[in-house]
């Protein structure tokens, strides 16, 4: 099977297969003989090709595959409240065509069962956004405490990447502020158990990158993302 695969994957086979395929397909398209007309032209062919679009999220220089923050802590390392961890995020155009991109960042807390806890503050999950205004535009209409939507204001060429949109992640030390407490005294011992609202909660950062084709991008963004933007000479502005 491996040999077969290798054979199939070889460019020579591909080209040969294409040529023969095209020949056979063309032969199959011959409808009838041409007896009555005298002079015939060449074939005037027009080939239309549609290419692939692709987008990849890049975290600390490496493409991310579904899971974010994987390398934030070393094994066994505890998360340090207040520490600014390196979390460099940007976008890479992994497709064949140029594209416009946007990023939606969601920050929230979930409980042990993975259920969202809307009462805990997303603002304490500090993802430091950078290059705002110069490269990335914040969509104020879409911004909530939980969500930030950034539009890259330039065309992103195929196989190239954007400047960073985030560089650091800090979990605010004040999540340790909100406490309840139980104490138990027996003899000379007093045991104090402190409970925190955020204890056991899991913070989540979700980054979703959308890409849209270069041609007719203004209409395509309107149609696919719903958002009205203006694209002038490759520069995107939010309406």
């Amino acid at each position: 099977m491996k040999k077969l695969k290798k054979l199939i994957a070889s460019p020579v086979t591909t080209i040969a297969a294409f040529a023969v395929a095209a020949g056979l397909l063309l032969f199959s398209s011959i409808g009838g003989a041409r007896a009555a007309l005298t002079y015939f032209s060449d074939d005037y062919a027009a080939n239309i090709q549609l290419h692939e679009i692709g987008v990849t999220l890049v975290e600390n220089g490496a493409p991310v595959e579904g899971e974010l923050l994987k390398g934030l802590l070393a094994e066994g390392e505890e998360l340090k409240l207040g520490k600014a961890y390196q979390e460099q995020l940007n976008v890479y155009n992994s497709g064949v065509i140029n594209e416009y991109v946007r990023v939606s960042i969601h920050k929230y807390w979930v409980d042990r069962e993975g259920e969202k806890i809307p009462s805990l503050s997303p603002e304490l999950i500090g993802l430091n956004l950078v290059n705002l205004g110069t490269d990335w535009l914040v969509d104020q209409e879409a911004t909530t405490k939980e969500r930030t939507v950034l539009y890259y204001n330039k065309l992103l060429a195929s196989q190239s990447e954007t400047p960073l949109f985030a560089d650091k992640l800090t979990i605010d030390g004040s999540i340790a502020d909100r406490v309840g407490e139980t104490r138990e005294t027996s003899g000379g011992y007093t045991t104090i158990t402190v409970t925190y609202e955020y204890d056991g909660a899991r913070f989540c950062i979700e980054a979703k990158v959308d890409g849209v084709q270069e041609h007719n991008a203004q209409d395509a963004i309107w149609s696919a993302w719903g958002r009205r933007v203006t694209i002038d000479d490759g520069v995107l502005r939010l309406n």
Partner: peptide, 24 residues
Amino acid sequence: AYFTTYTSASGGYAIDLSNETRIV
């Protein structure tokens, strides 16, 4: 409609704040 694409990734860590101190 049109050629669009998306990718998403998410992650996070649980916060362990529980502490129990005993005073003698």
